[in-house]
């Protein structure tokens, strides 16, 4: 495909820019962009894109974010964008082995990718924390439970089977848990990392948020 140029990157931005706001790509533009590039909307890739571009808001990229982000990754075509996102998706969400890189034929600049590949756990933590701040309204300390459940189902469920059960529990207790604060967000990842689907690794004496204590009690009651 064609090599990176800033002009091509800018042209892409102009193609998907919001009809009412020339400074940013909005939700509609993003949807079109993903459709054209074959990026599935329901997976983690849109979040990875936001992360890579350092987006401040959900579903919106400013011109500055776009220009700086694409220039770092040397991306100016939809196909190179797709490979960059699916590389990270495979590496971090589906825990596949890193792709072999050859700077001469790589579709985009894989320097950042390779640094993530060295420590995928820490890279995943960065992505995970980014998602909380992205989804959190500026004035609020929390994100609502519906949004956080949606995010968990995309980011954590593929990696950690127990997450699916936690989501099932939250769904069953509809309305009991109203919001996710930063502590719960952080501890949810910690929980997924330390507790396996048979609840090995869970100690009730530890400082788990009550939602997780209650989930464990629910799960134990359910499967004797």
């Amino acid at each position: 495909s064609e090599p990176y140029t800033s002009a091509r990157a800018l042209a892409l931005f102009e193609k998907y820019v919001d009809a009412d706001d020339s400074t940013a790509i909005g939700p509609v533009g993003l949807e079109n962009l993903c459709a054209d590039a074959n990026i599935p909307m329901e997976g983690a890739m849109p979040l990875i894109l936001a992360w890579q571009l350092g987006a401040k808001e959900m579903g919106r990229f400013t011109k500055d974010e776009w220009v700086e982000g694409t220039s770092n990754l040397k991306i100016s075509s939809l196909s190179s964008l797709l490979s960059a996102l699916s590389d990270l998706n495979n590496l971090l969400i589906f825990s596949k082995s890193p792709v072999k890189s050859n700077p001469k034929i790589d579709p985009y600049d894989r320097t950042t990718y390779l640094s993530y590949a060295k420590d995928t756990k820490s890279a995943f933590h960065k992505l995970y924390l980014f998602c909380f701040n992205l989804a959190k309204p500026e004035q609020s300390r929390n994100i609502d439970m519906e949004t956080s459940a949606a995010l968990w189902s995309v980011i954590l469920s593929p990696k950690y089977p127990i997450m699916q059960e936690v989501l099932e529990y939250i769904g069953e207790k509809d309305g009991v848990y109203k919001a996710t604060n930063k502590d719960l967000w952080t501890m949810m990842l910690e929980f997924c990392e330390t507790v396996d689907p048979n609840l090995q690794g869970y100690e009730s004496e530890e400082a788990w948020p009550t939602l997780l204590d209650e989930f464990v009690a629910w799960k134990k009651a359910r499967s004797p």
């Binding site: 300390r141 929390n142 604060n181 930063k182 502590d183 400082a207 948020p209 009550t210 204590d213 209650e214």
Partner: peptide, 13 residues
């Protein structure tokens, strides 16, 4: 559980 909830509130605040 009430103590834990209070801890959560204080973490949040």
């Amino acid at each position: 559980p009430d103590i834990k909830k209070a801890i959560e509130t204080l973490l949040e605040k």
